[in-house]
Amino acid sequence: MMEEKKYLELLKNGDPEGLNALFKAYFRLVCTVSFRMINDQQTAEDIGQEVFMELWKKRDRISITGSIKSYLVRAASNKTLNFIRDQKIKLSNAEEPTVEDFGGTTDTEFEGTEELKEKISEAIKELPDRCRLVFLLSRDQEMSYREIAESLDISIKTVENQISKALKILRTRLAPYVAKMLVYGVLWTMA
């Protein structure tokens, strides 16, 4: 954290060294936040560029109240939401697959936490668009139901339904793995 403060100071003084340090530390994270939302690597990289370009341009008047990390994560999310809005990307809604369509898996032959993380990322990626966005705004951005509703221009009721649905789909898909890990007590070492 002390290091970060130093880099932020450098950045504010117009020293590219500060920007470089923050870029190295967080560029991939920023891209990942966006990528998780839209599943498009090229756009995610463009949005990452935009976020850091803006950080550079606004460096002498920027005020970050929390950590620089959460500032960047939120910026990436906002830019991605704007992108979705501007591009009028249609979020899949009607005729969405139901929870059952995602089915449980019978393949429980796996060991280790690495694989579980991978399975979870994969499962999140395959959630229906709107469902995934709602879930990620809660998970990655820690937004309240109301904030999510406002960001996506949907009702709070819809947010609740989608959260519920996301967790249900994830549980159905991942339960066999997770339950096994819980039994062996492996999961608690993940954090």
Partner: peptide
């Protein structure tokens, strides 16, 4: 457990 494990982790980075 799924909720806890679904945050962005090092291995998830693009």
């Amino acid at each position: 457990a799924i909720w806890e494990a679904s945050t962005i982790q090092e291995a998830d980075l693009m």
